[in-house]
């Protein structure tokens, strides 16, 4: 992705990190999915796999 530079004559190449930071909905996706997987799903799977007391 490129953006016009401030003087407008040549496109400015944006780094990967810049593009990541500017993609707000990708950040939203990552910020929801990572804790959902590592904290909630992993935790729930461990509890769900506990043997039931008899």
């Amino acid at each position: 992705m490129a953006e016009q530079s401030r003087n407008g004559d040549r496109p400015e190449k944006l780094s990967f990190w810049q593009r990541l930071m500017d993609n707000h909905f990708l950040l939203l996706f990552l910020g929801v999915v990572i804790p959902t997987v590592f904290y909630i799903l992993w935790g729930i799977m461990e509890i769900a796999n506990l043997p039931i007391a008899e």
Binding site: L27, L30, G31, I34, P35, F38, Y39, G43
Partner: peptide, 10 residues
Amino acid sequence: YILFLQLAAA
């Protein structure tokens, strides 16, 4: 923060 802060709930 976006990637890791919420995990501290543990």
